[in-house]
Design a binder for these strands. Structure first.
Length: 560
RNA sequence: UGGGGCGUAGACAAAUGGCAAGUCAGGAGAAUUUGGAUCUCCCAUUUGGAGGUUCGAGUCCUCCCGCCCCAGCCA
């Protein structure tokens, strides 16, 4: 696939034009600028793929830069997890691991410069007063009484702010722009605030910290970024981004905004995600139901699938809601090609083959991956007592149900044709066992007389199978856009987002599998060994189901 | 009500004044030792609406409608 053969998004279009015009000396340099105050999620993956992807495509660079200008919210643990996640997604920032805090001294000097130019002043207004003076969306603001302080006084005050002479909230440094601007960001924005807080990198060296708008453009400039790509809500901030760089006469990257990702049936705001964790609706950021990168990883998603998803959703400026089914499609597509097939019965129903000899078993050949024959074959033990899936038997089969039923013959995959001759129930009427006969002539799964069966079931040998726990995950939210109707996203939490099955029977060959190993459980879905597994107790997470035509038929039958 | 954006199918998303791509979802069928995967076909006479310019408009112009973002010493 070459660049010219697929449609190009508007950002790549801009970059092509810039290259054509030899802007920025024909360099392309982007950056991914997370704040280390939380874990990365699939929405960040979109930005990561965009920024690192563009750098790769245009033979440029992408920096990893931590936007660490607020020590009250940021932690080193988040830095660690962010680096892990970006790396896991398959991107490499090489030696370009930067921190906005690396530039604090430089930023301070630029602030002094702004003061000297009469473009910034120290303001003594309280937070409440600043808000009052700012005006509203429709009324313009009014000038701070401190706006016209002499330069010398500003210089003195700013230095004393830095020296720790004032308490939090008592003073700010503000840019002197325009209190009447229709763009509220331009109404003398705060550029430094006093925060007596220990920073995870600079320790106690600073007690004043720059605000985002001021720090971000300068960081981009220092790093020689060419295209500073961010999300739509920063569009209103671009005039400020440009103002600082223009006033300071610094190298000037261009900010370009795109629409952040929204995914159906989940939430992607950091605030909501934190709430889910803190209130115990999920077990943590890496709960497999979380759209966090760590959650998706634990769920069994591959970096390839996520990158592919990010490619497919495109990049544009309009707000959108991407259907979760597209993400699911991407992981199925990847796993179909790569996952080893295996037989696992998650809701076991015992089957006795009455005409099969006791005290013996045989080993049958099974294909590891029909999509990739180089993955070879394996042996699967077959014996008189087996387990099949409870869903694969119906005493009174509805129309179009092709699976096992009384007097009906089906194939056991890679084994024999079997026919159900008796149904054993307990005193409460629940089916506890099926009695079947098998046809020895059909070994391997084909009948020499050419007769056909309409279904093939997976199975495991009762004696040889091993027990496992299987965790079935569904959408975390029942609504496409959680909280849209009620106003509270938590009212739409799916009470059935996790179902734990503790008595699953799996092929003996899986005994040696390790955390992170992925398999297709034939006819069920893709699964991944969870890191909660221990020796002798395997736990599998369902990554995603297989497409299920029968479930659709059944659903439409019920709806009739 | 000020400022900044955005409206193409159920969900994404192309189109750069010249026949409304592609993908997911959905539907029908073929084949099938996974009701999986695969393959074939169907799914916008029309681009938020109304006018206008033009031989020709999703694209240009005018007006209208709708949706999103902004009033942190968060990012």
């Amino acid at each position: 696939m070459t660049e010219s053969s697929k449609p190009v998004d508007f950002i790549r279009e801009i970059i092509r034009e810039d290259l054509k015009a030899r802007k920025y000396d024909s360099r392309v340099h982007t950056r991914f600028p997370p704040e280390p105050n939380g874990y990365l999620h699939i929405g960040h993956a979109k930005s990561i793929c965009l920024n690192f992807g563009i750098a790769e495509e245009f033979k440029g660079f992408c920096n990893l830069r931590f936007d660490d200008t607020n020590p009250t919210k940021e932690e080193i643990e988040y830095v660690k997890s962010i680096k892990e996640d970006v790396k896991w997604l398959g991107f490499d920032w090489q030696d370009r691991e930067f921190y906005a805090s690396d530039y604090f001294e430089q930023m301070y000097r630029y602030a002094v410069e702004l003061i000297k130019m009469g473009k910034a002043y120290v303001c003594d207004l309280s937070p409440d007063e600043i808000r009052e003076y700012r005006g509203t969306l429709i009324e313009s603001g009014k000038d701070s009484p401190y706006r016209n302080r002499p330069v010398e006084e500003n210089l003195d005050l700013f230095e004393r702010m830095r020296n720790g002479e004032f308490p939090n909230g008592s003073h700010t440094l503000r840019a002197k722009i325009d209190m009447a601007s229709g763009n509220i960001n331009m109404r003398d924005p705060v550029i430094y605030r006093i925060l007596h807080a220990e920073h995870h990198r600079t320790g106690n060296k600073w007690c004043i910290y720059p605000m985002y708008d001021y720090a971000h453009c300068i960081s981009d400039s220092i790093e020689g970024v060419t295209h500073s790509i961010c999300t739509l809500e920063f569009e209103d901030h671009r005039p400020l981004y440009d103002w600082f760089l223009n006033e300071l006469k610094l190298y000037h990257p261009q900010q370009i905004e795109f629409a952040r990702l929204n995914l159906s049936n989940t939430v992607l705001s950091k605030r909501k995600l934190i709430q889910l964790v803190q209130e115990g609706h999920v077990s943590g950021w890496d709960d497999p139901r979380m759209p966090a990168i760590s959650g998706l990883r634990r769920r069994g998603y591959t970096p390839e699938a996520i990158r592919n998803f990010c490619d497919r959703i495109g990049v544009a400026k309009r707000d959108s809601m991407v259907d979760m089914s597209l993400l699911e499609y991407c992981i199925r597509e990847d796993m179909n090609k790569t996952a080893q097939r295996v037989m696992a019965v998650i809701r076991p129903l015992k089957v006795v083959i009455v005409n099969y000899p006791e005290d013996t078993f045989e080993e049958l050949d099974a294909i590891n991956n029909p999509e990739n024959t180089s993955m070879g074959t394996r042996k699967v033990p077959f014996s008189r007592e087996l387990y099949i899936e409870r869903d694969d038997f119906r005493e009174d089969p509805p129309k179009q149900f092709f699976r096992l039923a009384p007097d009906r013959e089906v194939r056991l995959r890679y084994a024999y044709f079997v026919k159900c001759i008796d149904v054993v129930k307990d005193s409460s009427g629940e089916i506890i066992e099926l009695r079947c006969t098998y046809d020895p002539e059909t070994k391997g799964g084909d009948a020499p007389d050419g007769r056909k069966v309409k279904a093939t079931l997976h199975w495991v040998s009762a004696l040889h199978s091993i027990n496992a726990e299987v965790r079935l995950y569904n959408h975390l939210f029942t609504k496409i856009n959680p909280g849209e109707e009620s106003g509270d996203f938590k009212t739409d939490i799916n009470p059935k987002s996790l179902e734990i099955l503790r008595n699953c029977k799996i092929e003996p060959g899986l005994a040696s599998s390790k955390a992170g190993d992925r398999f297709q459980f034939e006819r069920i879905g893709y699964f991944c060994v969870d890191h909660d597994s221990s020796e002798g107790k395997l736990i599998f997470n369902r990554t995603v189901t297989l497409r299920d035509t029968w479930a659709k038929i059944e659903k439409s039958q019920k709806e009739k």
